[in-house]
Amino acid sequence: METLTTPLLIRGRGVVSGRVEGEALVTTQTISGWGGINERDGSIIERRHELVGQSFAGKILVFPGAKGSSGWSAFFHMTRINGVAPAAMLFTRMTTKMALGAVVTRVPAMTDFDADVFTEIRTGDHVVVDADAGTVEVTRR
């Protein structure tokens, strides 16, 4: 049941501009692009990943960042072309893979938060990301 409390407000730095809202998918594990995701359906395929088999398509993806092969940006780029990109990316570890991947996926992206997004945001929460204002609003679901 939806709660009527005020949404939690988290501030951060916009990496790719834009505003979007949607359902959160949260993992404390970094994600591989090439070899880690299926770019045709947006699912995680890395066999030891806690989200294996789940899709991030259309979700507000909350994760530490990118790992693995340099195909990261190209694979997330293809999720955009294939219409299965996440709706937004909220991440905590800046790397070149992560920055370039967010830029070419062209979805709102943020980092450098003033709160721990892994404890404040849970999978299924409703999240409003405004990368231009530098805000994330979280409503518990």
Partner: peptide, 26 residues
Amino acid sequence: AWMESSAVIYCNGALGGRTNVEGKES
């Protein structure tokens, strides 16, 4: 400006060249 994670770590670690892990677009 190199891609390929195994080449990047070789460039930086083994050779002392300087690169980040770049991507197809960069």
